[in-house]
């Protein structure tokens, strides 16, 4: 189904684990440096209310004066586990795109503030780069360097799967438990 901006609380709370979505709208990249900076009280350079953060360190180059995205797959999300939930609450972040899923703390905040975790296909750098139709800006490039900067990506039909929702459900938790059971039964 289509998940279109604005990413309001209603729209986000309507999502359920296991749904495939195609995201259209503006998303902001942010990985380790950004999360640490915000966690330490740094002021966000963009308004994060009802926003989606993308855990991604893209390869972006300037061609004829324009930014062009060369590769834009997700990076491992769990590194932001200590920060993500509180930042969702503080700034009204409604969604996080990444890979590998996140833990119980983030899940709790998803439920509390009305947010979701959206799993992109790890490694699909080319397919995902094609869905970034425009780069609308970049922030903190000086401080953090290109892969760690905050890129404003206009995406169109960017594919992802809801793997943690605002109702306390986590596909990662369920698949882990089911596979552990299956292993026990194999003996």
């Amino acid at each position: 189904m289509l998940l279109e901006a604005p990413f309001t609380e209603d729209r986000i709370r309507a999502l359920r684990v296991g749904q495939e979505v195609e995201i259209t709208g503006l998303v902001y990249t942010g990985r380790d440096a950004v999360h640490k900076y915000l966690h330490e009280g740094g002021k966000p350079p963009v308004d994060l209310r009802d926003s989606i953060i993308y855990h991604c360190g893209p390869v972006v180059v300037k061609e004829k004066g324009r930014w062009v995205v060369k590769a834009a797959g997700p990076t491992t999300s769990i590194r932001e586990e200590p920060y993500q939930g509180p930042l969702m609450e503080q700034y009204g972040i409604r969604g996080v795109i990444g890979k590998g899923g996140m833990g119980p703390k983030t899940l709790e905040y998803c439920q509390k503030v009305g947010a979701v975790y959206l799993h992109a296909i790890g490694g699909a750098a080319q397919v995902l780069a094609e869905r970034v139709v425009a780069v609308e800006g970049v922030h903190m490039m000086e401080e953090f360097g290109s892969p760690e900067a905050i890129w404003e990506f206009r995406v169109e039909r960017f594919p992802a799967v809801v793997t943690m929702d605002a109702h306390g459900q986590s596909l990662h938790r369920d698949v882990l438990a089911a596979s552990q059971d299956a292993l026990r039964q194999l003996g």
């Binding site: 890979k99 296909i121 790890g122 596909l171 698949v175 596979s179 299956a182």
Partner: peptide, 10 residues
């Protein structure tokens, strides 16, 4: 047979 699947989606 463990049901983990691609990306751990099942």
């Amino acid at each position: 047979s463990l049901g983990i699947g691609p990306m751990g989606f099942g």
